[in-house]
Simulated scan of single mutants.
Amino acid sequence: MKIDYLQALKRIENAQGAWVLQGQEPLLEQNLLDRLRQYWHSQGIERQRYEIQSVSDWKTVFNALNSLSLFSQQLAIEAHGNIKPDAAALKLLKEYLQHNEQNLLVVVMPKQDNQSLKSAFFQLIEANAVLVSLNAPYPQDRQRILSVEAEKLGISLDNEAWQWLLEHHEHNLLAAKNSLIRVSDTFSEHSQITTEQLQACLQDQSRYSLYDLSDDLLKGDLASAVKIYQYLLATGEPMSLILWTLSKEMRLLMQLYEQPHNALQLGIWKTKVQQYQQALRRLAPQQLLGWPSLLLRIDAAIKGISSENAELLSLQAIAELCQAPLFQMKN
């Protein structure tokens, strides 16, 4: 079955079997995963996360799905990566879909091209599970999605304001959501937002963005990246969005190291391939090994699960990406 983001939101409570999320909209991925995690937490469903960095990692995922802990009756597993199962793992996936109706496997992948979507893995998912497209190709789709975000904030926009917001941010839903948050904070006494209010709020807030941070991380410009990071913190950028940016760049670089000739298939834009390749040449393979655990520590700190400082850990991740670790191990 193929569904879109808004349809997926309505099916959270009935999610079972396997869901594969693929697309290029970070806001949609973040929102959908947040909603799933909230539901799992409310129902006492155990959650586990795995990074798919090689085909062999799929065996670990299916072993986990078939072995509940003593304290859990249901299990939800997130598998993040862009490596599809091989024939042996596809057999395990088929067995799981046929016999395990309680647990849920959520596979999170970057946007796939048409050829990839015709592979055996995606055909199996479409026929026996759920394929969620995290894309919003048309202006009306983007407005519908952002209208839901505006409603959460207790605001609405008139037609002219919607047109201005969509044109101002082009296809960037994440930036558009941030603008809605800022305008709702700035004009908290207003429920109906006009174009003039949007312009007044955003003209002073457009100095730096998460995309500027991404560019500096790929360039390895530590001084500029730290300056932008501090600006984002000072202007109220949510830590979860900063983590998403750090995670995206780290994961793409880790995947590109494993698959150096598959940059486009990994979801890297053609115009950015050279930047990622240059960044990878700058980095030592041993650095990459510690990134997944660092990202998990940042996530736990943001959620209050650990006592560590999320801002300092994020700064450490920025330094790692720029090949300037804040802490060096002594022999």
Rank of each mutant, 00 (worst) to 15 (best):
S42C: 02
S42W: 01
Q43D: 07
Q43W: 06
G44H: 07
I45Q: 06
E46C: 10
R47F: 06
R47H: 06
Q48C: 15
R49G: 08
E51G: 07
E51W: 15
I52F: 06
Q53C: 07
D57K: 05
W58Q: 02
W58L: 05
W58T: 01
T60M: 10
V61K: 05
V61T: 09
F62L: 10
F62S: 06
F62T: 07
N63V: 10
A64L: 08
A64D: 10
L65S: 10
L65M: 11
L65P: 08
N66L: 08
S69P: 06
S69H: 13
F71Q: 07
S72T: 12
Q73C: 05
Q73E: 15
Q74M: 08
Q74T: 08
L75K: 10
A76Y: 00
A79Y: 00
H80A: 05
G81I: 00
N82A: 14
K84D: 11
D86K: 04
D86S: 07
D86Y: 08
A87S: 13
A89D: 09
L90E: 09
L93Y: 03
K94C: 04
L97P: 00
L97C: 04
Q98W: 00
H99S: 13
H99D: 11
H99T: 14
N100M: 00
E101L: 12
N103Q: 11
N103I: 06
N103R: 08
L104S: 07
V106F: 03
V107S: 06
M109I: 02
P110H: 07
K111S: 12
Q112P: 01
Q112D: 04
D113F: 08
N114I: 12
Q115V: 11
Q115L: 12
Q115E: 11
Q115C: 01
S116Q: 15
S116R: 08
F121P: 00
L124H: 05
L124F: 05
L124M: 15
E126L: 14
E126Q: 15
E126W: 03
A127V: 05
A129I: 09
V130Q: 13
V130T: 15
L131D: 03
S133I: 01
S133W: 04
L134D: 03
L134Q: 02
A136F: 02
A136Y: 01
A136W: 02
P137N: 14
P137Q: 10
P137G: 09
Y138W: 13
P139E: 06
Q140T: 14
Q140H: 12
R142N: 07
R142K: 13
Q143E: 14
L146C: 06
S147E: 13
S147V: 04
V148C: 05
V148E: 10
V148I: 09
